[in-house]
């Protein structure tokens, strides 16, 4: 794959109105000099799921974590991130408000060692929500949205750590949704889960698509093809190809993309 830079590539573009969030020439540097991401410009269409695929170290997670400025503490991020016609990759941007608008779910389920209810209400309370009735309602709604309500409605005050891995991950989604974000970023949300939990999680995501824009990093090609409308392929810190999932999987332009997809399926 030495000549990867010469490969044919296609990057799908959307108009700004179609996009929930988009990046322009996004580059990420670690430790001042080590560049992990090279001028990535991608737009993510509203109310769709976009899968980011690519080998380990291809920069897809780095890219995802830059979108809600989670890399601020460890890396320098150049370029712009457009969100509501505003470049949110500026120091004057209030990252706390930004992260409330762009939720994130991580690779490993990371519920707080608190009760299920508190996991969801903790951030709300920090935002000044005090009305107990309202909070209970949000807990119920977000757990329902995350398809977890039926399983936990009788034990909301038990520790979240007692849930199974799959339930914990859906709780993390519920926790993110409770803040009513516009966008959900998912960093390999199913990689630590068993097949049954994964299926449930995918179901949940498919339903959430109606209202949220989701960007999901995944190693699992089947998963990408099962639930995403669009797919971007990352290679060595570059976004090499971006198109509808159908096109990427059935008719990839570049040789590397094709090899990666076949290798990962085979």
């Amino acid at each position: 794959m030495e000549n990867w830079q010469d490969q044919k590539s296609y990057i799908k573009t959307f108009t700004e109105d179609e996009c929930a969030i988009s990046t322009q020439d996004l580059s990420v540097f670690y430790g001042g000099t080590v560049q992990k991401l090279f001028n990535v410009s991608l737009g993510f269409k509203k109310n769709t799921i976009t899968a980011l695929i690519g080998a380990s170290g291809s920069g897809k997670s780095t890219f995802l974590r830059s979108l809600n400025r989670m890399n601020d503490r460890v890396a320098r991020v150049d370029g712009s991130i457009m969100f509501h016609s505003l470049d949110v990759n500026q120091s004057k941007i209030n990252v706390y408000e930004l992260r409330k608008a762009i939720g994130m779910v991580f690779q490993k389920p990371n519920p707080f060692p608190k009760s299920i209810r508190e996991n969801i209400t903790y951030a709300l309370k920090a935002n000044g929500h005090r009305n107990k009735k309202k909070l209970d309602q949000i807990v119920e709604e977000s757990l329902k949205a995350a398809a977890l309500w039926d399983e936990v409605k009788d034990k909301l005050d038990q520790s979240a750590l007692a849930l199974s891995g799959g339930q914990q991950q859906r709780l993390c989604i519920a926790r993110a949704i409770a803040l009513k974000p516009e966008i959900l970023l998912l960093d390999e949300p199913a990689s630590a889960l068993d097949p049954v939990s994964t299926a449930k999680l995918e179901d949940t995501l498919k339903q959430l698509r109606k209202k949220y824009t989701m960007v999901m990093v995944t190693h699992n090609m089947q998963q990408a093809s099962r639930i995403s409308e669009y797919t971007a392929f990352f290679h060595l810190g570059h976004a090499l190809e971006y198109d509808t999932t159908t096109n990427i999987f059935t008719n990839p332009q570049g040789e590397i993309t094709e090899k990666y997809i076949q290798g990962s399926f085979g």
Binding site: N94, Q207, L208
Partner: peptide, 23 residues
């Protein structure tokens, strides 16, 4: 399954550029 759940809130773009309690 038919989806019911909470809607995303309308993001108040102004708040993104102003310091908040967290700041």
């Amino acid at each position: 399954v038919k989806f019911k759940g909470i809607d995303p809130r309308n993001i108040d773009v102004d708040r993104l550029t102003k310091p908040s309690k967290e700041t």
